[in-house]
Write a protein that binds this DNA or RNA. Structure first.
Lengths: 186, 186
DNA sequence: ACCTGAACACCGTTCAAGT
DNA sequence: ACCTGAACACCGTTCAAGT
């Protein structure tokens, strides 16, 4: 049983039964092991959650194409990040409260930051724009699927509802990206 | 002991000792009463949290001046909402996972929505813009002060750090508002 | 080295009982 | 009507003990 096995099992439990179904006893059972064995690999429950967060950050980055301009890269970043969040709705509250490692965050945003640098923008300007999009995406996902911990699984969305959120997301993301574009066009 | 007393005591506990210090036993002690007495007034712990959320929404709206244009109203809305969140940092994760009542939300956003209507914009356009700002503000506050539940109180920010977040917030909010302004200027 | 059972100090919540 | 103590079924985590 490796650390990665534990993280994978934890994510499985979260996806199927939600965040507070993830008890140490349940996680142990999922791996055919006593709960206490987990403490050999991860120091406590919080460390398990942190590992899941970083795993998800890595998952988001896999299909991120850089794009031509920084504004296109920024839009794609938001879209890919959102896709990951919607693929793991029960994990969204976890991402909201559990900051990701700095290096996991940089791996996630790295490609986009490069596009800003290539356009001659400072790293501070780049970080501001990318992180602004990131918090918008997360906040939006929370509004869409972030159910309070302890509540049963949300009923699946109707297509109409899903489309409502999709349009709202596109409008907000476009507004933010074009706002930054106007700022840097000067 | 009224329902409002309970909500006030709950917020007091959250502000001083964080979200998971808020146990039913602790809340009872805060009010000089047995934990079980609380169930006479609120059906369970989740109902206490929901009541706190709506209380905070009402708190944010108190000092919200409408502003001249809808874009100014939108900026003020974001600023006031942010001020409330920063006044209750340990409650931010709660706002993130616990959707507010529809009517509490409308009371919070109502004044701003009116400004959009006065400018001849549809309610759908208005909601998209206001809610986009709202999720940005919440997401940003999460990044700034949203510490995982169960962690000790974050050390107070240095002025430098606070200013970093302030500048980031201003840039993101401005980008979003001006992006919506450009969209509706057509 | 890796795993475990029993135990401790907590939770939220129910229920029968008190005034 | 309003409050309560004891109890139940859980938690995360520690620790001494097993292989």
């Amino acid at each position: 049983m490796t650390r990665d096995d534990i993280v994978a099992a934890a994510l499985r439990v979260i996806d199927t039964d939600g965040l507070d179904a993830l008890t140490m006893r349940r996680l142990g059972a999922e791996l055919g092991v006593a709960a206490m064995s987990l403490y050999r690999h991860l120091s406590n429950r919080d460390a398990v959650l942190a590992a899941v967060v970083n795993h998800l950050a890595a998952e988001a980055v896999t299909d991120l194409e850089p794009g031509d301009s920084w504004s296109e890269a920024l839009t794609r970043f938001g879209t890919v990040y959102r896709r990951m969040l919607l693929a793991h709705p029960r994990a969204v509250p976890l991402l909201a409260t559990h900051p990701m490692d700095i290096d996991a965050g940089l791996r996630l945003m790295g490609g986009v930051l490069d596009r800003f640098a290539a356009a001659g923008l400072s790293q501070a300007e780049a970080l501001t724009a990318v992180q602004s999009v990131a918090v918008f995406v997360l906040g939006h996902a929370l509004a869409q699927v972030g159910t309070p911990p302890g509540t049963p699984a949300a009923p699946p969305e109707t297509p109409e509802v899903a489309e409502y959120y999709e349009r709202w997301f596109d409008a907000g993301l476009t507004a933010m990206v074009s706002g930054f574009a106007a700022r840097h066009r000067r």
